[in-house]
Design a protein around this nucleic acid. Structure first.
Lengths: 152, 152
DNA sequence: TTGATTTAGTAAGCAGGCTTATAATATCTC
DNA sequence: GAGATATTATAAGCCTGCTTACTAAATCAA
């Protein structure tokens, strides 16, 4: 049976590979910190925005609340964060970064910065901005929020 | 404690989000086929290259052999592929696409094509090529193979 | 105020990555 | 040939996503 030509390096596959490569490298280098890339992302949001409910965290991370719940479980166990009750809403648990998170921040940020530099080596200047613009556009085009659609 | 500025839309996070968005959309639309994006990728390689050992498949997919093993388990159970012994090497199991895989191919390819068109809407012509060039470069820059390194 | 609806968090269980470890088989070297 | 080394596949067990389903609490509506 004939197959229409599918480049085996389609956009989706390349994105998948690039994302996996970055995740792998980050986790290799952050292994001594004991910080996964998913956990690093949580810390970035908490340190920049302060304590957040899990629901808000889920929005920022663009993952489901249940995924946040278990991610926070492990991060709490590892001493990165703590859950504390919200004084105004007894359903809510505010996630708060602990001292260990602040202490590791600069170190992890350096790992990320070095990684991006290595990843982009050999690309023309301005490639990063072109790339991030395209990625933002793709994310917007595929998002569920209706206000994001059809603005050409 | 002060934090150096970390854009919460760094390259790594944007790549992660774009990849997840594409995966989610693909799987929503391919749900009736019962084909996940990881499984679709396996089929693309098998239909283009013919039967492959799991080790070769792992190389093409850029994942670990154990991940292939379990992916193929599920695909075999679902009737997409079969394992058959290699006549020349009794360690090897050749993975062969079944009729069901050929039958679903055009349908899945159409889903992928439509998805890429939607993802790239509003980007300038040539953006796809710029994007895939950058992604290929990133993958190369972060790969483990030494011959890929340091060619600037 | 009470009853329905929405929201926040989690349990259970699955897919698809990973590391580490093991068995079976090939291959290389002496 | 025999022994050391490589390779192929897989088991066990972890992390991070997901869907579905549940409880508790807040909010809306009558």
């Amino acid at each position: 049976m004939s197959c229409s030509p599918v480049p085996d390096e389609s956009l989706g596959f390349l994105l998948t590979d690039a994302t996996r490569a970055i995740r792998r490298r980050f986790e290799q280098r952050a292994a001594e910190l004991g910080l996964s890339s998913a956990q690093w992302r949580v810390l970035v949001h908490l340190l920049r925005r302060g304590p957040l409910s899990q629901a808000r965290l889920a929005e920022f991370l663009e993952i489901e609340p249940i995924s946040v719940s278990r991610l926070v479980d492990r991060m709490q166990e590892a001493g990165w964060v703590e859950r504390e009750p919200d004084p105004n809403d007894r359903r809510v648990k505010r996630v708060v970064a602990k001292r260990k998170a602040y202490a590791a921040f600069e170190n992890a940020k350096q790992i990320a910065d070095d990684l991006y530099e290595q990843a982009l080596a050999g690309l023309p200047p301005g490639a990063l901005e072109t790339l991030t613009d395209a990625l933002r556009r793709i994310i917007l085009n595929l998002s569920d929020s209706p206000e994001a659609q059809d603005d050409r």
